[in-house]
């Protein structure tokens, strides 16, 4: 165990400010972005491997996740009417700027891929009949190209949010910058696999079950490394409200992942596994946000590691800053 930290502070007040992002907007966006990213990757793989039914589920999930997620993102802003200001510049030092461009590209591509898949699944629908002939003719190829292109934007969509939270002064986030992308990537695979299982006939959902089980394994492994490697700074992932959320996430993800390996046998097992994995992914995102808040609220997580750096003669330095704006 980590020994009780001794440190000085200004009346126990926090040194840094806690993230002001709201619940449930922020963690829901993290979940939906991951779900959309994983699902779009699944849709691309399904297109290339000829799994059309699973591909349809994946495309709809990817578009719905990106659209809903973007809605929560805009609602989270202090000035939602100014959300387009996100796209007035491209700024490589800001993961939120990079992420806004990723989201813009990804949601556009996944919407196109979904439109094409829905049209070809319902060619006689009123909307399809009203499309100009040239558009109708080009739509399937354009949709397939868009779905394959989301194989690039999807994984970025699922992992950029880890960089987003890590690129802060919040110790529990910043110090976990190696593991958080893997935690989110695994969770995204598990979420997308879960949705694929839940909304695709069992005979055609095989790859979704494999992705779900493998994603759950990655998520669990990354979570375990965070808890062990971070020491004192990782305490919020183990203790308090955030610790309870992370433990619930682990139990649900482990259970759902194990069930996914046998879920092909029955509808009940499929439903149980899919719901457990979804709940696990949600708990992970709520837990990570809560851990960040707890980490910012207690000055010991800021002061103790910095004081240790000074005392070991390992003072921080940016003599050659890696990134700076402008």
């Amino acid at each position: 165990m980590v020994p009780e930290a001794e440190f000085r502070s200004y009346y126990g007040q926090p040194v840094i400010k806690a993230p002001v992002w709201h619940v449930p907007h922020m963690p829901l966006y993290l979940y939906l972005g991951g779900l959309s990213g994983g699902a779009s990757l699944m849709s691309a793989a399904a297109r290339l491997a000829g799994h059309d039914r699973l591909g349809l589920t994946a495309r709809v999930t990817a578009a719905a996740g990106a659209t809903l997620g973007a809605g929560f993102l805009v609602a989270e802003l202090g000035r939602p009417e100014r959300f387009l200001n996100m796209l007035r510049i491209f700024k490589p030092t800001s993961p939120m700027s990079v992420g806004s461009w990723i989201l813009a590209a990804h949601s556009g591509l996944s919407a196109l891929a979904t439109a094409s898949a829905v049209m070809s699944a319902a060619p006689a629908s009123a909307v399809a009949a009203r499309l100009p002939r040239r558009v109708a003719a080009a739509l399937p190829a354009a949709g397939d190209a868009a779905a394959v292109a989301t194989a690039l934007t999807g994984p970025l969509m699922a992992t950029y949010t880890a960089v987003l939270v890590a690129d802060t002064a919040v110790p529990a986030w910043h110090e976990a910058h190696r593991e958080l992308p893997f935690l989110f990537a695994g969770s995204a695979l598990a979420s997308a696999g879960a949705m694929g299982m839940l909304a695709t006939p069992r005979a055609q959902a095989g790859p979704a079950r494999v992705a779900a089980a493998a994603g759950a394994a990655v998520e669990l492994a990354a979570g375990a490394v965070i808890e062990r490697r971070l020491g004192l700074v990782g305490e919020p992932y183990r203790e308090g409200r955030s610790g309870r959320l992370m433990r619930a996430a682990r139990a649900l993800t482990a259970g759902g992942g194990l069930l996914a390996t046998v879920a092909g046998r029955s509808r009940a097992l499929t439903a149980l596994s899919g719901l457990a994995l979804t709940a696990g992914a949600l708990c992970t995102r709520f837990g990570v946000l809560e851990a960040g808040r707890a980490s910012a609220a207690d000055p010991k997580y800021t002061v103790v590691p910095q004081r240790q750096r000074l005392e070991s003669g390992d003072r921080a330095s940016t003599a050659a800053p890696a990134r700076s704006w402008p």
Partner: peptide, 20 residues
Amino acid sequence: GLPPDPVVTTRDLPAMWGWA
């Protein structure tokens, strides 16, 4: 109430993108 050894978080941004 001041941090004893503050760091600009973007110092580690290239490493973060690498892991991502």
